[in-house]
Design a binder for these strands. Sequence first.
DNA 1: GGCAATCCTGCTCATATGAGCACGACGATG
DNA 2: CATCGTCGTGCTCATATGAGCAGGATTGCC
Lengths: 332, 332
Amino acid sequence: MLPMSTGLPTLEGERKDTVDEIDELLSIRAAELYYEENKTQDEIGQALRLTRWKVGRLLAQAKQRGFIRIEILHPRARRLPIERRLREERGLTDAIVVSTAGVHSPEELQERTAQAAADYLTALRPVPRTLGVSWGRTLFEISQHLRNGWATGVNVVQINGGVSLNRRPGTAAATAVGIAQKGGGTATLLPSPAILERLATKEAIESDRVVAGVIELARSADAYLFSAGAADHNSVHVESGYLSVADVDVLVQKGAVGDVVGRYIDSDGNIVDPALDARTVGLTLDELRAAPLGIAVVAGPAKHAVADAVVRSGLCSVLVTDEATALHLLDG
Amino acid sequence: MLPMSTGLPTLEGERKDTVDEIDELLSIRAAELYYEENKTQDEIGQALRLTRWKVGRLLAQAKQRGFIRIEILHPRARRLPIERRLREERGLTDAIVVSTAGVHSPEELQERTAQAAADYLTALRPVPRTLGVSWGRTLFEISQHLRNGWATGVNVVQINGGVSLNRRPGTAAATAVGIAQKGGGTATLLPSPAILERLATKEAIESDRVVAGVIELARSADAYLFSAGAADHNSVHVESGYLSVADVDVLVQKGAVGDVVGRYIDSDGNIVDPALDARTVGLTLDELRAAPLGIAVVAGPAKHAVADAVVRSGLCSVLVTDEATALHLLDG
DNA sequence: GGCAATCCTGCTCATATGAGCACGACGATG
DNA sequence: CATCGTCGTGCTCATATGAGCAGGATTGCC
């Protein structure tokens, strides 16, 4: 029962100075003195003619009502409460959320996220013996942010096709090799294009002994590290020549929100184009879903939709992302 | 002496993990746990394998290095440290600086400032018996934010000409009357235009017994409350018809940054156009400067330059302004 | 290598803060 | 008008935090 609400229409115009409003103002004054002037609650009490307990309560009230905002301004800062919510409300094993406070460019956001992913990998225990990785801009940046000796003797294996066709050849390979070298181990590359033009070719390649062996190794990895791409014209698949701009448009029309290891999914995480999917080399999404440890690194406004699909459909058990994306996942 | 700098070019690439960098990261982790997760320093110590004293020092360091930002989000929030700096570095008797956190429109900024000015007047002790006021948009808004009974029996007197010529007649009068009525007192209006076309007319008006009496009363006021206008086409003087757009342009060319009680000044606070000034009715700037208590209310990006002139030339002893303007005054 | 200056660490002790409780004021209710 | 329930208040006590200090490690310097 609320004792204050009498039901009677009190003279609003006259007695605007309700207790509540006075307390609100006082709590602001108290907060100013406490947080900006570093006064003690007792001193504030003297200044405002209140007991120090009242001051303490006013401050608690100000916090609770959200008048006090505390931000940690640092490229490496994380948002633990949001991480907790992601774990609890989205069933993730773990979540890393980097702060977007003071971020001005998309590049900066990308860098913070990559750094966080590298940090997560480095701190991961037990250290994975075999790590399956995808490739792309995000993965490449993670590889660059890892430090020498981040692990001791990790075997890195590519989990999807990665012979890139464009003018920056070897990015996919450089990523895997970089991660492996800095981790004191070796890389096993998947010598196959990401997407083949004909199903028969794809099946032929997969039945190749070497390729089959790599995929088998990939299936046995202790952990997977992958990103997701947005379904737009900036996609690495377009850049690498595996897909045309028109292909992407068609996929989007069919409901695609983005891709994971080269496989395009809709907002529910389902394969959008089974025929295309059949021509894509590497681990399947179901194999990825079955993994005990799948670390997805997805950040940036363009990837909100994919990130949502990835998390909802259980493609990863650990998510590394930015604050804005995380909040998008949570309030949807 | 800095013991760390050996002068030797240490192997930068290899030992990036300097103590400083580790400590920085640790202080961020500690801050996250402390401010976002409400852990105790002791708990943080256990989690991070540090003693609680170390944690305390890391937190202090984080604050000191500016990694922690605490903001008070409220329309009535003020910025006490900036107020202090204004008092100390600009020699003001008092300063009121409203926070701009969460302000989206210029109107909101104006409202916050007016509210703060009203609050200041209300809290002013001793309560002024005679209060000299100017007029304009800011003053009008202050009058609206004052509460009934803000003073008991205050006599309000206009300090500059205020018969406005435009279609919103009586704004000047309404301001003074409003302030007076809510303060349980009476208003004395200055029945004269702000600026006259001919010097002779101005001298004639000032020698009128009533007008002379009002000005005499104005000179005797305990306190003055006034704003300042920017020298641009939105000026109330243009709106009221006292000046043309061309007149303002000329003034700007002569170095005008704005006006106080209808008198245009340059960045040093000097009268820009003595002839024009001589045709302006009301207290002179020197009379204003001599006042023991002059409260200037100046806010908004457009008024940074005038605000600076007002403060530098000692036109006011108390300034009510916004955070951005205050910072402009301080770092210039 | 020896020496001195410096910083860092982990402590003691004083202080600041938060939890919980009993009292009294107030308004609602019969 | 009596009674009850609720809330806000000011307290006691336990805990969390910060200041200041002595010893030990580290570093520059000769």
